Simulated assay, not measured.
Amino acid sequence: MSHSKNQNRPLPKIGFRLVLVEWEDSARPIPGWQWVEDYELPETVRCISVGYLIAETSDAIALAPNLGDVVQPKAQACGIIRIPQRAIIKMWSL
């Protein structure tokens, strides 16, 4: 499949910053019963997410990996993830 007809078309102007976020998440819960004294505290999970920064507050950011209808006055987004600010280790603009 050739995309040559789209190669000369300029990219639409996106009003959102593309970022890479390194953040920390909780470990998966243990699904079964166990004795409390046998429990070992798991390590947290380091995560990396890439997307368009569509919202940011002092509490959290929202990243959308997919944008649609970008040439319209209102864009659509799919797959939005909310990441608490306190979980963010570092964020880079791409």
Rank of each mutant, 00 (worst) to 15 (best):
K74R: 13
S49P: 03
V70T: 10
G51S: 11
T57L: 02
P65K: 07
L53G: 00
I81T: 08
A55M: 11
V50M: 06
Q72I: 09
P65N: 11
K74S: 10
R46N: 14
A75Q: 02
D59C: 10
V50K: 12
C78K: 14
I81N: 01
S49C: 06
S58F: 13
I81V: 15
L53R: 04
I48P: 03
L67N: 03
I61R: 02
I48S: 15
N66P: 01
Y52A: 03
A62Q: 11
I81G: 04
L53W: 02
D59L: 11
R46I: 14
A60V: 08
D59R: 15
A62L: 10
E56R: 12
P73K: 02
G51F: 00
Q72K: 04
S49N: 05
G68A: 07
V71K: 04
V71P: 00
R82H: 11
Y52N: 01
R46H: 15
P73H: 12
A60Y: 12
S49Q: 07
A77I: 04
A75F: 02
C78N: 04
I61G: 02
A62K: 10
G79C: 08
G68W: 09
C78Q: 08
I81H: 03
R82V: 14
P65C: 07
A64K: 03
I81Q: 09
V70N: 02
D69C: 06
A64R: 02
S58T: 14
I54E: 11
P65E: 06
G68H: 12
N66K: 12
V50R: 14
G51P: 05
V50H: 13
L53M: 02
P73W: 06
S49K: 11
A64F: 10
G51M: 00
G79W: 01
Y52P: 06
G79N: 00
L63I: 09
I54N: 03
V50I: 10
C47S: 15
R46G: 11
Y52D: 06
Q76W: 05
G68P: 00
G51Q: 09
D59K: 15
I54S: 07
I48A: 13
D59I: 13
I54G: 02
E56L: 14
D69G: 12
L67V: 03
V70H: 04
N66V: 15
V71F: 12
C78P: 00
V71R: 08
D69I: 06
A62F: 00
Y52V: 05
R46C: 11
V71N: 02
D69T: 09
A75E: 05
Q72Y: 09
Q76C: 13
L67I: 03
N66E: 14
A75G: 01
N66R: 07
A77G: 07
D69R: 07
P65V: 06
V70R: 06
R82D: 05
I80P: 01
Y52L: 01
I48Q: 10
V70M: 03
A64S: 14
S49G: 08
V71Y: 03
D69Q: 14
P73D: 13
A77N: 08
P73G: 06
E56I: 00
Q76S: 14
A62N: 08
G79H: 09
A62Y: 07
I80Y: 02
V71E: 10
G51R: 07
D59P: 09
I81D: 01
S58R: 15
L63G: 01
S49F: 04
A55K: 04
G51C: 05
K74T: 10
A60W: 10
I80D: 05
